[in-house]
Design a protein around this nucleic acid. Sequence first.
RNA 1: ACCCCGGUGGCGGAACUGGUAGACGCGUUGGACUUAAAAUCCAAUUUGCCGAAAGGCGAGUACGGGUUCAACUCCCGUCUGGGGUACCA
Length: 921
Amino acid sequence: MEYKFSHIEKKWQKIWKETNAYKVSNTSDRPKYYVLDMFPYPSGAGLHVGHPLGYIASDIFARYKRLKGFNVLHPMGYDAFGLPAEQYAIDHGIHPAVSTEDNINNFRRQLDNIGFCYDWDREIRTSDPYYYKWTQWIFLQLFHSWFNRKTQKAEPIAELVKLFEKEGNASHPCPGDLSIRFNEQTWAGFDEHQQMEILMDYRLSFCGYGEVNWCEALGTVLANDEVVNGVSERGGFPVVKKKLRQWYLRITEYADRLLEGLERIEFSDAMKEMQSNWIGKSYGAEISFAFKGSTSQLTVYTTRPDTIFGVDFMVIAPEHDLIDQITTPDQKQAVEDYIAYVKSRSERERMAEKKISGVFTGAYVLNPFDGREIPVWISEYVLAGYGTGAIMAVPCGDERDFKFAKHFNIPITNIIGSHYNGEEANPTKDAILENSGFLNGLVMRDAIEAALKKIEEIGIGTRKVNYKMRDAAFSRQRYWGEPFPIAWKEGVAYPLPESELPVVLPHIDEIKPGREGEGPLSNLPEWIKSSPIGGERESSTMPGYAGSSWYFLRYMDPHNDNAFCDRKVSDYWGQVDLYIGGTEHAVGHLLYSRMWTKALYDLGHIGYDEPYKKLVNQGKIGGDSRLIYRVRGTNQYVSVGLKDQYETDELHVDVTIVDGLELDQEAFKRSRAEYNNATFILEDGKYICGSRLEKMGKRYFNVVNPDDIVAKYGADTFRMYEMFLGPVEQDKPWDTKGIEGVHRFLKKLWRLFYDEVKGQVWNTEAPTDAEWKVLHKAIKRAEEDTERFSFNTTVSTFMICVNDLADLKCNKKDILQPLLVLLTPYAPHVSEELWHLLGNTTSILDAEYPTFEPKYLVESNKEYPVSVNGKVRTTINIALDAAQDDVEKIVLSNDVIQKWMEGKPHKKVVYVKGRMVNVVV
RNA sequence: ACCCCGGUGGCGGAACUGGUAGACGCGUUGGACUUAAAAUCCAAUUUGCCGAAAGGCGAGUACGGGUUCAACUCCCGUCUGGGGUACCA
């Protein structure tokens, strides 16, 4: 009886399906555990071996937790809305709904091949109206809410209206526009239109105007990555900034809570760092400087008020409002030219530019403390959107300011004495201030506070906390996304009642951009006019991250028609205990879904405000490309070792026709017509390819399809090999060759039970101590390593165990059966098969995880490494319970040790019980 | 430029709180079984030197320092690869 993996795997996959082995109940006496994968966008290319890495890891952990007695939720679904499907429709005329369905079916087939334990009854698709009904519903919750800064949480906007009626907005300044101020009488005097406009500036999902990448030739709005060097990626048409009406999420109100929450969740430091950098909280001050000979003022934002005496010039953004007003007549032309130049440049160019540019406005402001005249410049390195769009430049302390000053020959004031060397700026906070008026003699670190106090005291500025993060744009002028449950009446957005949900995405035969930057839905006048509350429907759709911001909740209660998720159910499942996915979603998806969770929590819909308790980032699997070398101008190919003797062109060759590094010459000739008469220059009769590690992708011909691997070696081998490659978090190259080792391991395991010649070899004899020891060593390590997600070392633990048992010729059921349970999360099919062959009638999926018993590992002696002055010289067998004195005696009397002590007296003997002994002389 | 993560044999990697560096696997070499192949098994495999061998001596975890009885592990500096962010004041 041999190991027929393909037969075994098909058989058990069928049985597990028929017996609903992976069905999960929302009620259980067992403790819960929620394992979630970042769900995939079902692309047309299908899965390559890099994709399932995280899925396998989570599957192993889910199965492990189940064996440990947990009720485990481990669902899967599809992030099914998105741009590629829409683009595919435009290019090939196939409707996104159709291509998405096809792609999902293909993904599902590939996933099933690998033997995952997903409860497919809980599958979700974000593009399914039954799902996006609730995406729209949550959007409405956000629309009907505002963020109360006093309580630091989302509250119903109806409450805010009551407050306005009672006391105006004095105690709740408007986050959308600080200049909006009114009392209860003025509020009562506003008409509905005005009131709705004001409320819009408070809502958590709101409509405003934002700049987008507008491509006139394509008649559409482009995403940042669709714009390359200021032109569209497709077609190369010009792209300009255009202000369009857009929906936003007021995520900035949550900035502090998003920061605070990071302290309560287990994300990697790198991930937390990325999120807090993105949020970009900084403490500083806004300071106003009076213009010379004018009543107007220039307000700047700075984090270093201590350097105020070192200000040598001001820089304002080219978009700054004051420019027209302050520019002197003789500088007018220069300023206009500069602004025209800046406008001609795309945002990307502006950001990438390292060269210094700018223009003087002719205006001066006065330093409030010493009255010094400070010139005001314009430069593109200051951004309009951050702070006040104006900075005070301190060239001795800031590198960019320094370079600017040097470039335009602006004199530099040194306020930090010897810390400034005239060659480069020094951003230190440790210098003692000089040339700094009332701050002289203070250490900068302390001067910050002193300066702030003074600035506030004389009323020229206030402390200010700034965030880099912006409100999140939430609308797309696209077709393949969730429609908004919104209708417009005379320029005012009205929400549709909940009873109208879902607003189903209408069918479009041909997807084309609408007019005036509107989305394709605007081409359906009948649909636009079909609003149940009158007016016109919103023609934009929601972005990709809408559906993914809350999907972890829907898996808990996927068929609920009355709620996005029953509160009792979300209370039972709680947070996602383990979330596995790639780093590429570090700031997008993870921040948005954290915000949605907080809002849902604030509004009482769920009982926790962080969605993911622990996040593990899986690394990427790189492709190992194979290269061949064509002798230039010929159809002759030279093996890598000889290529330097010729002038060659390097070509990628499909990795599937290369065995290791050796090219299958016949397969190569067959692969393309142009290679039919290829000839080769060989070394040792072989054509050896070059290799290079690159991203796995079609263009490099290095894609390895998991289907092929599973067909050749089986799912169990594939699963274990993906884990064996290295730590899950780490990037690593794929090497198909190495899979043999794991496959051999499974065959070796099989032979402990059945022999090709002898048939059954397993028996029911009583194990020896040595055999128990091998088993329990494996139990201990497999459990510890799985718990800390060290799946690669668990696999080697299994190998060591099987090697040891084979050496001991142990075929005993008492040993082999618990081993199968340990192995189940990693190789479920072969474990289940052998489990049944041992005579079990229930499924191994619900077996009990073996308990480690230390007694089998207890030893009385250890072969201690003994060093002299830190160098290991010999090993001595010493009793484990030996005391320091005994050990000293034994060790010092040892011949080898005496030799290395060279007759010198020992200073001390370091004895670490169970570890080592070191003699210091 | 800043931040984060890494750098260990021919290769993927192991060494968890400092305690015998290189587990496990791939590859390579030699051997057994076989008519042959596949499969399987055995042995060797960081490196230099001495030795017929058993074995011994020395070096070694990117590089240079340091702390320690003891450093892949901790500290300082440098180089280098990858990722993130970006004229963010």
